[in-house]
Amino acid sequence: MALLEVSDLKTQFTTRDGVVRAVDGVSFALEEGHTLAIVGESGSGKSVTALSIMRLIPDPPGKIAAGKVVLRGESVLDMSDADVRAMRGDRIAMIFQDPMTSLNPVFRVGFQIGEALRIHKGMSRKEADARAVEMLDLVGIPNAPHRAKDYPHQFSGGMRQRAMIAMALACDPDILIADEPTTALDVTIQAQILELMIELQQRKGTAIIMITHDLGVVADMADDVMVMYAGKQVEYGSADAVFYSPQHPYTWGLLDSLPRHDIDEKGTLLPIEGQPPSLIDVPPGCAFHPRCPYAQAVCRETCPELREIEPGHMAACHFAGTDSLVRGRVATAEGEVR
């Protein structure tokens, strides 16, 4: 049994303009100690997926309309509010994109790290403070006993994200959900934070769900990759499968728009043309078809099912695994690279 199993998760938001299907039938499994990367553009439903697992979707306007989230055999969506609170921060912890705003400005950093320990582990204020200092030390904050007494504004961006990681890992959770943890940081700091996460994962065996739009991050860390587009899963498989034999044109687009230093080729970056669709008014058929250079008549009419292309590698494209699409891609690539 996997540590976390999500099946057919559907999360919707009711707005004045209509129902937004932010997450529309997403399924995946996360094994102990593994890393799953959820990749996609802004608005593709990555963060909502994560918040749904934590049951942090604001209701109203949001609602988890269908699906299952099973943590070690226990259904998260059927838990009582008290059980969900007991789970949050203790069994599944989360860190967020913007460390500048994710820490409360009026409480000391050490206090904020110790808070989860006091609720979940029943520690006294003193024990929690001591443990907070240990955690800060663990995530590489120099002079931790002193810095624990600082307020967040006295920390730099990278240090705040380290503090967030310390906070999230304080209770030794089974799963750490990292929602674009490096997006708001300087490039040099990004690498440090990722290294820290990898190191802590190896030391503590924490499973990680890494939400990102940066495929470079994915390549460094992920065991499995799930690509999302317009609330749906378009490709899902092991990192190797998704990187070396991507099946969905959207995944190709993501890979083509990634700068690469490993191949000495004068290729240009190829952006994906167009904008992600509005989730209120998703195009009929395959949601990606208006931006897909290989779209055919069938793409405009029928929404492709997620199907297994090779063992453990799924894609939602009518032409996935067929020769026609691959030939088309090669032809286009040759035409454009010149």
Binding site: R85, F96, L103, E115
Partner: peptide, 14 residues
């Protein structure tokens, strides 16, 4: 509506 409220919720606070 601030991010730190979400952080606090994610910690399991009531």
């Amino acid at each position: 509506g601030q991010d730190y409220i979400r952080t606090a919720m994610a910690k399991g606070l009531t």
